[in-house]
Write a protein that binds this DNA or RNA. Structure first.
Length: 465
RNA sequence: GCUCCCUUCGUCUAGAGGCCUAGGACACGGCCCUCUCAAGGCCGGUACAUGGGUUCGAAUCCCAUAGGGAGCGCCA
């Protein structure tokens, strides 16, 4: 059997972190079993689905690297097929027409609620064969009245539902269009989905879908219902904390592999390992090991993981991303080798690549202002001559490598009997404008001799050194 | 209201009856390293929701209770 999983978002909003995790688990499972991952857009809600949302989902999936083997399929393009199945069911008697008006149904529900019962359709048209001419009708699935349905869920274990709790759901609206639960069933059957992996908010829909699948003579897929992701405060994910587009994570400077790693570790683990490459996730991930309980989204841990990935991945992996973020800050950076050096020296001091870009802009723009307080503290009367001496010595340095620069500066500091910091900080201020940068030798080396010396000269003139 | 699901440090988790005076990670505090900021190393505190069983023995099994969540649409 070839494993076939699917991710089936509805384009009524952006792809957020919860959807991405569902997609990831589907994708990982398919990859691990050399199966196929199918992308299906569930756009039957014509009112709320938008073209922008579709594009946004596609972009998000691409950024994350979760590439489908088949699709994207669109349910709106399959209406003929759904209609065909509905006709079949009507003919076979597994579905029937119901002529209740919306008002009638509302009234029925109101009465049931008043009696403390669960609101549901009472089956008043189930056995009728007549029709009301001129009155619009819907088509309902004839759900079994007795017995039970067992959803043998991979993460939850067997979950039993009584058929008596289930009512006859509408599969075709009065305008003839099919409804969600029905489309899912037909699609999963037609697309030969073997493993349905989705959020556990769908667990309650599963027995109905299973009954329909059985009525259609299809083989039931394996189900796995994933726990939800909550906001940092433990409440439902909202726009305030994480329910933003996954593309926002790209814009904020996160690596897709870090986001995926973080998502994988939400509800799943492999011993004490925290950092996983994509390959490791594929090799080690199994839905059977997924937890049952919901988990809260923790931004700090994601940031930490992002930095871990930045430090572990080859620097060239980061270069184009850094370039992209620099450009968004209005900095044009052409030199590949220089960018690589920046990544190497900055990645342990930034949680995100955006932060790295912000911290590295000074390499491309000479400081226009200097941290006043720091200047007062570090550029004291006694160090001014030393600064001049250092600048002069650097001017005579032919080998502009970090090692040579380091030898020169620390040699000078030693000769003068002062701590390295006494000299490094003023130089740092002169070339960066602030007190934070990579080690001073690396900073100067990356800057280049000409640029470094010109910045030093400018600062000296300003400070009267 | 009814049905279904969930419950180990603040957070993510390990834990499949004795290996648990509950392990790891993020965050937090302290120390070390140190030219800044980081990164790194070491140390520290904090958790089995509650109550009953079962058992020689329970975080682990069973039952209640409590709390949280989902579903109950001509939405998906």
């Amino acid at each position: 059997m070839i494993v076939r999983t699917r991710f089936a978002p509805s384009p009524t909003g952006f792809l957020h972190i919860g959807g991405l995790r569902t997609a990831l688990f589907c994708w990982l499972y398919a990859r691990r079993h050399s199966g196929q991952f199918i992308l299906r857009i569930e756009d039957t809600d014509l009112e709320r689905s938008t073209e922008a949302a579709i594009q946004q989902i596609l972009d998000g999936m691409e950024w994350a690297g979760l590439i489908q083997d088949e699709g994207p399929f669109f349910q709106t393009k399959r209406f003929d097929r759904y209609k065909e199945v509905i006709e079949e069911m009507l003919a076979e008697g597994t579905a029937y027409r119901c002529y209740c008006t919306k008002e009638e149904l509302e009234q029925m529900r109101a009465q049931q609620t008043a009696r403390g019962e669960k609101p549901r359709y009472d089956g008043r048209w189930r056995e009728r064969t007549d029709s009301l001419p001129g009155v619009p009708s819907v088509v309902r699935f004839k759900n079994p009245l007795t017995g039970e349905v067992v959803v043998d869920d991979v993460v939850h274990g067997p979950v039993v539902f009584q058929n008596s709790e289930l009512d006859d759901l509408i599969i075709a609206r009065s305008d003839g269009t099919p409804t969600y639960n029905f489309c899912v069933v037909v699609d999963d059957m037609d697309m030969q989905i073997t493993h349905v992996i989705r959020g556990d908010d769908h667990l309650n829909n599963t027995p109905r879908q299973l009954n329909m699948l059985l009525a259609l003579g299809a083989k039931a897929p394996v189900y796995a219902h994933l726990p939800m992701i909550l906001g940092a405060d433990g409440a439902k994910l909202s726009k305030r904390h994480g329910a933003v587009s996954v593309l926002q994570y790209r814009d904020d400077g996160f690596l897709p592999e870090a986001v995926l790693n973080y998502l994988a570790r939400l509800g799943w683990s492999h011993g004490d390992q925290e950092i996983f490459t994509i390959e490791e996730m594929i090799r080690l991930f199994d839905i059977a090991d997924v937890n049952k309980s919901a988990s809260a989204f923790n931004f700090e841990k994601l940031a930490w993981l992002n930095q871990q990935h930045m430090m572990h991945v080859p620097a060239v992996r980061i270069v184009p991303v850094l370039r992209w973020h620099l450009e968004r800050e209005g900095v044009q950076a052409a030199d590949e080798a220089q960018l690589e050096q920046i990544v190497l020296s900055q990645r342990e001091r930034a949680k995100t690549i955006r932060e790295m870009a912000l911290n590295s802009a000074f390499f491309f723009r000479a400081p226009v202002a200097y941290d006043e307080k720091a200047v007062r503290k570090h550029v004291t009367a006694d160090v001014r001559p030393l600064l001049a001496e250092a600048a002069a010595a650097l001017g005579g340095l032919d080998d502009w490598s970090a090692a040579a620069i380091h030898d020169l500066i620390s040699g000078l500091a030693a000769a003068k009997g002062i701590a390295l910091g006494k000299l490094a900080q003023p130089i740092r201020l002169a070339v960066c404008g602030g007190t934070v940068s990579p080690p001073i030798d690396a900073t100067l080396a990356i800057l280049g001799k000409a640029e470094a010396l010109s910045r030093l000269a400018r600062a000296q003139a300003l400070w009267g050194a």
